[in-house]
Design a protein around this nucleic acid. Sequence first.
DNA 1: CTTATATGTTAGAAGCTCTCACTTTGACAA
DNA 2: TTGTCAAAGTGAGAGCTTCTAACATATAAG
Lengths: 207, 207
Amino acid sequence: MDHAEKSKPSALKKSNYHHGDLRAGLIEATRQLVEEKGPDGFSVSDACRLAGVSTAAPYKHFKDKSEMITAMVMEGMTRHRDNMVAALGDVPPATPARIKALGREYVEFALKEPGVFRLKFGGFTDRLDDPKLQEAGEGTFTIVLHEVAACIGESEITPDVRRRGFMLWSFVHGLSFLLADPKLTSMGGEFDLEDILDDIAVRMLAP
Amino acid sequence: MDHAEKSKPSALKKSNYHHGDLRAGLIEATRQLVEEKGPDGFSVSDACRLAGVSTAAPYKHFKDKSEMITAMVMEGMTRHRDNMVAALGDVPPATPARIKALGREYVEFALKEPGVFRLKFGGFTDRLDDPKLQEAGEGTFTIVLHEVAACIGESEITPDVRRRGFMLWSFVHGLSFLLADPKLTSMGGEFDLEDILDDIAVRMLAP
DNA sequence: CTTATATGTTAGAAGCTCTCACTTTGACAA
DNA sequence: TTGTCAAAGTGAGAGCTTCTAACATATAAG
């Protein structure tokens, strides 16, 4: 492991004393390891080994382990939100199909990155109390609320809209957890995700 | 901290070299600490201090830290299920009120013991792969399925029953997570848990 | 009463987080 | 060009942790 990688500086690296962009490197290593071993199996030391730096290096970029995980989760949330927005794509406005698209993307993220997803909400939430996380979460929820409003013909976010949005979120969130856990999935029996999403959208948008 | 507590042996303790029922003591200590500091903040050492034994003592009862947590979670699941069964109490059979009662109890447990609840499903699930946990979970789910079947007039657990049950579970599960997280609760705005449970029961039991 | 077993203890190895003092490097001013 | 400073690494090590091994003690069964 010598040269030729990373690219923040001008062109190519002369030495590897300085990493280039260790912050990003550590975040990526953290993500990989959390996916691989779960949040409890993760250690800063492991991340250092993976990134090829000494165990003291991270502390130039993060206050502590918790902040390192928070940064990784933050990055995951951004990705999650971007995916959801992208999923709306050219789905016709004010249709349940948009709600469905958001839900599908939500679940899909949970399936693709279960470790990160669980960390976002599940295991360590108490500790991850960065207000930025909350902001980011609220931003995403607001997207959902606007879609719900459009679907039921409201021009603004009324209490009814908020309530339905929250219920939809609850459902999709729970569904994601159950599906992301191999031991729980089986209990649902055989079913099709699309059908389920259709079903809940219809039921929750009904008067 | 000398005498006069624990009671597995005949009457009262002479020495405290032997604890009496350390297994149960450690499980309780684990529960307390997980609630207090979160699953990540928990350490076996802490539990030992709380239980008043040496740090090597737990290993006579549990293979490792993970097994100790698993045991605690297992105990929590039993309690959770018992609560749910008790909540059914004398609610008239084959009514949505029974579904509601189960849902309320589910959420209530999550609010009362958020640490344990999250651990059951959230943070460490990969690691907590004791088949007994799965069994216990399935048992509880079966209770729900029977209630759903009764409500929609089926005499057995058809695919439709299973599907609705799974959706109800998803919803209540997600709701529990959102409500158990102080940062997320606010997003739902002002609302009444009873109303929400009524609402979802009606919507999910509709043809 | 004796003795086996279950359940404690102490000591310690290995590994983790995080700090401190030190080194290297790139950038920028003179 | 060159000198110097701040940013970003490093190694060593303190003080935790988990878990093992060898030893100690109490209880229960004979």
